[in-house]
Design a protein around this nucleic acid. Sequence first.
RNA 1: GGAGGGAUGGCUGAGCGGUUGAAAGCACUGGUCUUGAAAACCAGCGUAGGCUAAUACCCUACCCAGGGUUCGAAUCCCUGUCCCUCCGCCA
Length: 430
Amino acid sequence: MLDPRFVRENPEQVAELLRKKKFDLNVEEIKSLESERKTVQASAQNLRAEKKQASKQVGQLIGQGLSVDEAKAQVAEQLSKIDSQLAEAEVREQAILSALDEIMLGLPNLPHESVADGDSEDDNVEVRTWGTPREFTFEPKDHVDLGEKLGLDFDAGAKLSGSRFVVMRNKIARLHRALAQFMLDVQTGEHGYEECYTPYLVHGHALRGTGQLPKFEADLFKTNAEEQEQPHYLIPTSEVTLTNLVADSILEADQLPIKLTGHTPCFRSEAGSYGRDTRGMIRQHQFDKVEMVRIVHPEQSFEALEEMTGNAEAVLQKLDLPYRVVALCGGDLGFGATKTYDLEVWLPGQQKFREISSVSNCLDFQARRMQARFRNPETGKPELVHTLNGSGLAVGRAMVAVMENYQDEQGRIHVPEALKPYMGGIEIIE
RNA sequence: GGAGGGAUGGCUGAGCGGUUGAAAGCACUGGUCUUGAAAACCAGCGUAGGCUAAUACCCUACCCAGGGUUCGAAUCCCUGUCCCUCCGCCA
């Protein structure tokens, strides 16, 4: 959430910035709701003050020896007048406040000044590339063709759960597990992240904290939808659980930065992407990811963004997979992010770079929703922290990249050097 | 699944339905004292909104959340969430 105060004091400026993100802010609506809020709130407050006075008077009269009924009678007429006015004022007040609240919760984060203009991923800016795509002496296959004989079974996934699910078997399943273990070891052992195991099901408030709710409910899987009970949602990423670990807390300055990582499955309904990437495991309803989250001092978030991007890159470099780093343009930037770098790995089967990691700085956008603060020693006051999150990396897509980049003419996969310690002696997947 | 207990300010922890936004202690901040520090003593110390030149007054709201009773609710009732104890079941 943006600072409501900033929004109402600078609606034009906010609208201008949000245009870069392709978000249309209705400035007039905000202005009129705001001015109405002020007048309604002021009158409701005055009425409450009067009512409070009257009630207090009853207490005082009783203290002076009047009976309760006599004391009540003294203020009855006055009170009934106040009550009817107050009831009306409160209805309006609540309607306006919830309308404003809904608008505020729906506003995306403001893009950083360094973010380029643009509508889609085609306008993202390449920052750097690493590695050289391998020259094949044969026609490289994509992971679906390669996986057919190796244990990557999309038909079995569909049989159990429908489209966009997969079953992995044998050495492919092992490779998938090895990748996750390897990534977790890199992030904990070499980059100082604390390993976490977190729930895969969360309450709505956690999703509200990181920004998936209320706006993106359609992208989530929801459980026990029967009314009454508070529903659980399957996490779309462990950014949700890792980041919300600091919700509703006031941290000491010396606890920062907090660096967390975890390996979890992620569940996405992929609403609105019916036609995209229907082949293979690029876009699944369930996939694994090793996530990185940092909770930092507000002055250090951009530095942390660069570092975290490097932390994700390290995994690709160790796997010797060519990739490029792009800075997302305004139109491609996510809801909570002010700036995002995507890592795109080279896929020989598609002859394309494909997203394998996304690292974002959310500033205080999530912290404000979560009420995650730290005590600033300079002011002695609690202030909002900054949060960042990034994939380090998406396990399924990393496996796709390994398969396609390490294939040979016979359709076998040669296990990358870095993964050998995790493969129990398996060097070739066939 | 069943039976109980609990949720109060940064923390611990009081709080007969009526000047209680809330005792006390700790922590923190300023001061006195001291060569300095500690101790001791004094004072201050929540958040948000409104008003305002103002981080000054004043007003309103907030004692887990949402409803309700009442002239008046931190205090009574209902629902939800979370935590704890016991029983049952269970990997």
